[in-house]
Design a protein around this nucleic acid. Structure first.
Lengths: 198, 198
DNA sequence: GCTGTGCATTGATCTGAATCAAGAAAAAAG
DNA sequence: CTTTTTTCTTGATTCAGATCAATGCACAGC
């Protein structure tokens, strides 16, 4: 086995074992499918229009995935910190050009898995097939809730719903990114906060 | 083997085999996990607040899943026709009360699988674990696109994007349901269509 | 064939959140 | 500690799409 820095894998195993059981043998084989990468704050992992070669597991730090509209405005589709996966899935799976860009918003460590390694991993370690099925099942629920929130709630309700789901988020993520994630402007968030205090 | 009406299972197998290979033996065992149910137009499959006991595969017809807000307004979260799965996932998986309701919008046939059968199926037939992993993976991509659409696009862009994804949808689904699905009002859709003609 | 109920159109008006514009505050960099 | 950059706040104005209201249309039931 190649000598690997295992620091980030602790977080990965913690995540995997939350959803599925792994033998010691499996745990020993898993790191080989991944490659670790450090990103500084503001460094990018993926650019719009490139091919998304990897699925990334966030071992440390935080990243944002976003689209840019014709006016150059950023629309965040995901905020991912320790324990989350991030990529332009469509691009990763179907080998199309990415419509998402991904940047680090803190100094971060990610574990990258290529498409061929992803498929090999699923093939060789059935618990991983199970892990991803459960992960995606849960993500679907979360995305569904976000869609409902986006179509049904007022700006204030959207913000409160987010705080309820991720109470620590306002300590960690700047308001302008939260605004973009919710499809609102920073000004609106600011006014909502003011209103809530009163 | 119990004598089952197999009509709806053709559609199910077609879907399964699009994503994974099945042996004849597996195909023979699968129907046993399901139960077929016919719904008339407007009949409900799930009510808000009930426990969602089943995951439903639409073999024929079309259904909508939706939430009701405090004003009694309906917000459609999914339109599902032949080949789609529908349920309140969160309720189905975590055994919580459903926040979604599901109604037939055409006379329909659904194949229902209970939670325990779902888990047994995944356990006993590994290709099904694979099938659902791929299904959820794809659904995530679609939901992501919808979220981007919802946060980024104008009303007109949302409508055009939907038509592009499902060109036949306006022949099949009434405008007021399409409006609700997009988080718009029927009036807005009507004005958009008028505008597009000019 | 009428009649009712649900769906679609069109117009007038309203409103929540965006945009535009300045500063203030906080954090990072030197 | 000072300067620069980034984030946050507050106010004035605008605008896309909602709401309200009325009418037209189509098809299902009698």
């Amino acid at each position: 086995m190649k000598n690997k820095n295992l620091s980030g894998y602790d977080e990965l195993f913690r995540q995997l074992e939350e959803k599925t059981a792994l033998t010691e043998d499996e745990k020993a084989r898993i790191p080989q499918f991944f490659e670790s990468k450090n990103l500084e704050k503001k460094q990018y992992l993926l650019r719009q229009g490139d091919y998304c070669k990897n699925l990334a597991f966030v071992a440390k730090g935080a990243l944002k995935s976003y689209t840019l509209d014709d006016k150059g405005q950023e629309h965040i589709s995901l905020l991912a910190w320790e324990g989350w996966w991030v990529s332009d899935f469509k691009s990763f799976i179907a080998e199309e050009k990415a419509i998402l860009a991904i940047d680090a918003i803190e100094d971060s460590e990610v574990l990258l898995i290529s498409r061929s390694n992803y498929e090999a991993l699923l093939e060789e370690i059935p618990s991983m097939e199970r892990y991803f099925r459960i992960l995606y099942q849960n993500s679907l629920v979360t995305k569904d809730r976000r869609l409902i929130s986006s179509n049904t709630y007022t700006a204030e309700e959207k913000y409160l719903h987010l705080l309820k789901m991720y109470p620590f988020i306002s300590q960690r993520i700047p308001q302008n990114l939260i605004a973009s994630y919710l499809g609102l402007t920073p000004e609106t968030i600011s006014r909502i906060k003011k209103n809530l205090v009163e």
